[in-house]
Write a protein that binds this DNA or RNA. Structure first.
Lengths: 222, 222
DNA sequence: TAATATTTTTAGACTAGCCTAAAAATACGT
DNA sequence: ACGTATTTTTAGGCTAGTCTAAAAATATTA
C-alpha cells in the first residue's frame, strides 16, 4: 500500500503542488510537462500511476490536483528542500544562488527523524534563504503578508523578505546590487518611461531598479 | 563519456571496492550478488555495462576488479558516506547504530563542493563514528595500526578504535556494555572454555566479553 | 580423468520511466 | 455552429535494472 515513492514520483507531486498552489485550479498535463521539462505523453503515463496510488485526483482531459496524502508528501518535500537550503547557506556558507540544485537532491532523503533533527539543529528557521516559508512537520506553512516591490507606493519604508524567481543569474545580480534579504528600501522616485524605480538601500546607497527586477522582489512594510 | 552514474551503478562500484580491498583478489559475480542482495544474473548484466564505461576490469568467469577511475568513484562514495556519518552523530546527535542507513542515501548526493565544505564544517575528521578512516579528497585512506581485541595479550592496556561489524544490534549491544570508541580496556583474564575474556573498562567496571564480540572490536595499544 | 557439483553467463521476460507519432477530445474564432 | 487549432491521450517502442530458468563454463572429487 504505502511503499516509498521514487524521486521521480516525488518530483511530479511537488510540481503539481506548486502549480495548484498558485492558481487553486487543477493543473493541466502540459503545465506539468513544462514544469518538469518532459513530454505530455510521459505526464499522462505518470498521472495514471499516481492516481492509482491515490496521491492525485486525475480526470482525463480535465487536469490534476493533489489528494490530501499527495499534499502531505509534497509539503514534506518542500520542508526538506528549504531546511537543507538553510543548512547549506547558514552552516556551509553557500550563496543563496548555489543551494537550490543541491537541495533538489537532498529533499529526497528519506528519514523524518533526520528532517526533524536538522530543523532543531538549525534553530527552527521559519524561512529559507530566499524568504520562502518552511512548513512545519504537519505541513502547515506560515504565510506572510508580502508584496512585490513594484507595487509599493513612493516613500514607503520596506524590507526585502523574499524573491519570486530563483534562477541563479537573477540572484547573483541581486547580490551584486546589495539587494539581499533584510535590506531596508525606500522608493525615492518612479519613472514612467520604463517603469524603473529609484530606491535607497539601507539608508546609504541609491540604486535604479528595472521593472522586471522590482516585480520579483517581495517586501514588507515596516 | 563521463556522464554521471546512477545510484545503482555507484553501489556496485562500492561493493566491488570493499570486496577487493579485503582480499586483494578479483571479486566473483556471486560475491557481488551477495553483497548487494541481488542475483548473479543481474550482476553479470551490470558488470558488462560498467566494463563498457571503463570503470571495472571484468573477465568472464574470472571476476572483477576496479580500474583507477572506478576506484576514484568508490573512494569518493566512502568519503561522503563517512563524512555524513560524522555529521549525523556529531551535529544531529544520532547514535552510531542509526547513521549507516541514512548515510547510504546521502553518499549519492552529487557535489564535490558540498563534500569538501562538509568536511571543513566537521573540522576535517579522520575517522567516522565506527572508527573507519575517512579518505581525503584525493582518495587516500589514513590506515591505522589496529588489532582485534581477541588477539591482544593479557594485561595490555588498549583503547577501542573501531568495529569490524556494523549491524545495528551489535552496535546497540556494545553501547549497552559501554564499549564505545575511545574506551580504555585491559584484559584481566581469558577463559579457555568459550574463548570469552574478562576486561576492565575505563578502569572502573569489569565485563565478560564473548569471543564473537572480541573478534569484532578493533583496539590499539597505548 | 570422468562424473558431478558449483558458478557464471545467456536468453527471455518484466516494470518504471521516458520518447515519438498518430488519434481523440476539447477549445477557439468567425 | 462549424471548421480549425490546440491539448491530451493512446499506441508502440526504447533503456536501465531486475528476475527466473536453462545452458555453458569452471571446479571438485572419486
Amino acid at each position: 500500500m504505502n511503499q516509498p515513492l521514487s524521486s521521480t514520483e516525488e518530483n511530479y507531486l511537488k510540481a503539481i503542488f506548486k502549480l495548484c498552489e498558485q492558481t487553486d485550479k487543477p493543473a493541466s498535463t502540459n503545465d506539468v510537462a513544462l514544469a518538469l521539462n518532459t513530454r505530455a505523453a510521459s505526464v499522462t503515463d505518470m498521472l495514471k500511476r499516481l492516481a492509482e496510488k491515490s496521491l492525485i485526483n486525475y480526470v482525463k482531459y480535465k487536469g490534476v490536483t493533489l489528494t490530501s496524502s499527495g499534499r502531505t508528501i509534497a509539503t514534506s518535500l518542500i520542508r526538506k528542500h528549504r531546511l537543507w537550503e538553510v543548512f547549506l547557506t547558514d552552516k556551509l556558507n553557500f550563496g543563496w544562488e548555489e543551494v537550490h540544485e543541491i537541495a533538489e537532491q537532498l529533499e529526497h532523503i528519506k528519514s523524518s527523524e533526520l528532517t526533524n533533527r536538522l530543523e532543531a539543529f538549525l534553530n527552527f528557521p521559519k524561512y529559507d534563504p530566499h524568504g520562502d516559508p518552511i512548513p512545519d512537520s504537519d505541513g502547515n506553512f506560515q504565510y506572510r503578508q508580502q508584496v512585490h516591490l513594484a507595487d509599493v507606493p513612493l516613500h514607503t519604508e520596506v524590507i526585502i523578505v523574499g524573491v519570486s524567481e530563483h534562477e541563479t543569474p537573477f540572484l547573483q545580480y541581486l547580490e551584486k546590487l546589495n539587494l539581499i534579504l533584510g535590506a531596508k528600501l525606500v522608493i525615492q522616485e518612479s519613472f514612467e518611461y520604463d517603469q524603473s524605480i529609484l530606491v535607497s538601500i539601507n539608508q546609504s546607497t541609491t540604486q535604479n531598479i528595472s521593472a522586471k527586477v522590482a516585480k520579483n522582489i517581495y517586501v514588507q512594510k515596516i
